[in-house]
């Protein structure tokens, strides 16, 4: 699964994209976040406050309980600040 990170999430994790083999037991974005947090301290630090994490599944914004089954690309980023 391709996982993308943007803005300060990218900086805290230390990469903007990675391809990870996810366990079949992961079915939602929130479960993926928990799994990432358990991997390494840098993920735990980046995802510390869930209220400032936004999620996109295949480039469409999604809620934490959204299914990631069959997704090609999942992105995590802070609230947007363009314009």
């Amino acid at each position: 699964m391709k996982i993308l990170y943007f803005a300060w999430l990218r900086e805290r994790i230390g990469t903007g994209r990675e391809t990870l083999e996810l366990p079949d037991s992961l079915t939602t974005a929130a479960e993926l976040i928990d799994w990432l947090k358990a991997r390494e301290a840098r993920y735990a630090a980046a995802f510390e406050d869930p209220s400032v994490i936004r999620i996109a599944i295949d480039q469409v914004q999604a809620e934490p309980d959204a299914s990631i089954l069959g997704a090609r690309e999942i992105a995590f980023f802070p609230p947007v600040t363009g314009g």
Binding site: F6, A7, Q61, F77, V80, T81, G82, G83
Partner: peptide, 19 residues
């Protein structure tokens, strides 16, 4: 401003950058 995925990182006159 609320739906398009853009993020601004500002650099102040003191050289300090912040999101």
């Amino acid at each position: 401003k609320t739906r398009a995925p853009f993020w601004k990182k500002e650099t102040g006159a003191d050289g300090q950058a912040h999101w």
